[in-house]
Design a protein around this nucleic acid. Structure first.
Lengths: 159, 159
DNA sequence: TATTGTTATACTCTATAACTATA
DNA sequence: TATAGTTATAGAGTATAACAATA
């Protein structure tokens, strides 16, 4: 693989500095991301959770009583951006904002039974969408991909 | 790697259906994409080209006289969305819309000398940004990543 | 009828700044 | 002073639908 890449870069037909978008990691990352996001939407349907809402619900289920600030940090977004997400989940009655005795500034997020069920159902749908969309990748390749993506994340996220 | 993944999935501590976002390809893809896009912006500066404008300029340089419709198809976006991108590049005097004798509906896009120079400069900056951000990946890993991302793209783009 | 470029419009996702109520 | 949640606002980036000019 490295050999074929090196050969491609030195191809005299194109020159060493050919502005080939297709070789850039960022361009391929963006295009692949768009394909996955779009398929995610189709898979979960017109009334289904969006990717960001699913992520939030999933983390609330995994970490009961998490605060909004802590959740925003985990998701890598601003506090302010989380408000609409939690509003939607509360409107769907998938979670509740609970007052915390001892600090009246914070609100603990807790998934309802319906929320836990919706999260399980959504996860099944998401796994199905990934399995179908990535059926031309082996399990090894999927794991390699996740590992490489995590390496990129580790360079940009303060953790 | 597949082994460690299989072991992880069967970890009795978490159960086989744990809603672990971190294992999903889509979630990691999105987070990695955000990291790269944000670093791209910083690298090209406040007055620099955005990723989508750079992509368009790069393709116009690579395929002189391409029409807007054909370019939109190559970029995987709608014709209507390309208008603002071409407007910006024309305002920067990096390309021109040229009338085509024979079909007065179409306009051929041609990069100017300044546009070609800007494209070369931007490419150097983009390569620098990728080299720095991905310095914890080997060349082999970068190539593997690009290959895997292309596999995902091939499932969602009609080509 | 179909295609090219365009406009108008709206939606998603995100960020910044400022506010309020607490601490 | 600092923090949690909120609001208002703006900016990317994208899509859909409709239009005029042309084929």
């Amino acid at each position: 693989m490295a050999t074929s890449n090196a050969m491609r870069k030195m191809d005299p037909q194109r020159g060493a500095v050919a502005a080939d978008l297709e070789d850039l990691v960022g361009y391929n990352l963006k295009r692949a991301y768009i394909v996955m996001q779009s398929d995610f939407r189709s898979a979960l349907g017109p009334n289904g959770l969006s990717a960001r809402v699913f992520s939030a619900l999933s983390l609330v289920t995994q970490f009961p009583n998490i605060t909004q600030s802590a959740l925003a940090r985990k998701l890598g977004i601003e506090r302010s951006g989380l408000v609409a997400i939690i509003d939607e989940l509360e409107k769907r009655t998938y979670l509740e904002r609970r007052l915390v005795p001892g600090d009246r500034r914070v609100q603990a997020l807790v998934a309802t039974k319906a929320g836990e069920a919706a999260c399980r159902d959504a996860l099944v749908a998401v796994r199905g969408h990934e399995a179908a969309l990535l059926s031309n990748l082996t399990d090894d390749e999927k794991q390699t991909l996740v590992d490489l993506l995590k390496k990129i994340r580790s360079r940009g996220e303060d953790e």
